[in-house]
Write a protein that binds this DNA or RNA. Structure first.
Length: 306
DNA sequence: AGCGGTCAAGTTGAT
DNA sequence: ATCAACTTGACCGCT
């Protein structure tokens, strides 16, 4: 049984997440306008749209939704950063977070986070690690408020010595709050870390591996899809989460790591057909249109979709 | 109304 | 050396 997941955005449905820039906030400040007023407006809109997103997923049989890192824009910026309680409508926002949490729980829509590429726990630079930890704690706060059980990141850079890099990852993991640690997962990527390199880290830290089969096809390690699937499943103490996408120009073309608008059903590994229950996030540029199309196709082909 | 320039951040690999 | 890619274009301000 597969729970399909949508990532962050909508193509056709009128659900949008707003953002702003630190630079614009600083120009407001110079004009004597409180940047928190502008942020307040954007965040109000974002939380409303997050509820719409959860409802859309529930109404359309999409069992999981990945939440954009910019839900609270600029939250951890060194100059323009702020706290939820600094916002004029903070108490209203806390109620709206709670409303989304309850809606997702009631409608069984699993919520996840995927911090962006700037979050690197393996970096040799202390400033990078500190900013990464701040971002993870920000996402952890949201995850707790929303009942999300996954904060998924990559291994980060290799720096010519992946063993040392993953040791730094493990060491820095200890600096995270329990809120983040209990939700943190690591995903194999398309350039640096394969499943076989990450599995020992997962076992050492007791964190799950988010197995991305598209990345694994781009960056192989001698493990078969079946082996990687089995090993990844064994790291999960909750419902497993995997990723899939299709290459923009087809396999055998340049840059297979670029994502296609849709998922080619041929790319679904048959090795996944008898997994009892897992979440599969669909990384496709056509967003909800791609997920709904895939859902139809999978049903026709005899896959059991939630 | 449409469109161009701009935006906090890390790391890698292609050009 | 520059740039696009990555989970993802959105925003303001000028014409």
């Amino acid at each position: 049984m597969i729970r399909l997941g949508l990532c962050c955005l909508f193509l056709e449905a009128p659900i949008r997440f707003r953002t702003t820039t630190a630079k614009y906030l600083s120009t407001l400040l110079k004009k004597g306008i409180d940047p928190l007023e502008h942020l307040n407006e954007i965040i109000g809109s974002n939380l409303h749209n997050l509820l719409l997103a959860v409802q859309f997923c529930s109404d359309n049989g999409i069992g999981s939704f990945r939440i954009n890192s910019g839900l609270l824009p600029i939250y951890t910026h060194p100059e323009q950063g702020y706290h939820l309680d600094d916002l004029p409508d903070s108490s209203k926002f806390r109620m709206e977070f709670e409303k989304v949490r309850k809606e997702a729980l009631l409608k069984k829509v699993r919520l996840t986070f995927h911090p962006d590429q700037f979050v690197v726990l393996s970096s040799p630079r202390e400033d990078v690690v500190e900013k990464s930890i701040a971002d993870l704690e920000y996402q952890g706060m949201m995850a707790k408020l929303l009942g999300a059980d996954v904060i998924n990141i990559h291994g980060g850079g290799g720096y010519g010595d992946k063993v040392s890099a993953l040791k730094r990852f493990a060491k820095n993991f200890e600096r995270l709050s329990k809120t983040v640690q209990s939700r943190l997962t690591v995903e194999n990527d398309d350039k640096t870390y394969t499943p076989s390199e990450l599995l020992p880290l997962c076992r050492e830290l007791g964190i799950p591996l988010v197995y991305d089969v598209h990345h694994h096809r781009c960056l192989q390690d001698g493990m078969s899809i079946l082996e990687a699937t089995k090993e990844a499943l064994s790291t999960w103490n909750r419902e497993p989460l995997f990723h899939i996408s299709s290459p923009r120009g087809g396999w055998g073309m340049a840059k297979p790591q670029f994502h296609h608008d849709f998922l080619d059903i041929e790319d679904m590994p048959m090795e996944w057909k008898n997994i009892s229950k897992f979440t599969l996030e669909i990384e496709a540029k056509a967003k909800e249109v791609a997920v709904l199309k895939l859902k139809k196709q999978l049903k026709i082909e005899g896959w059991i979709i939630e």
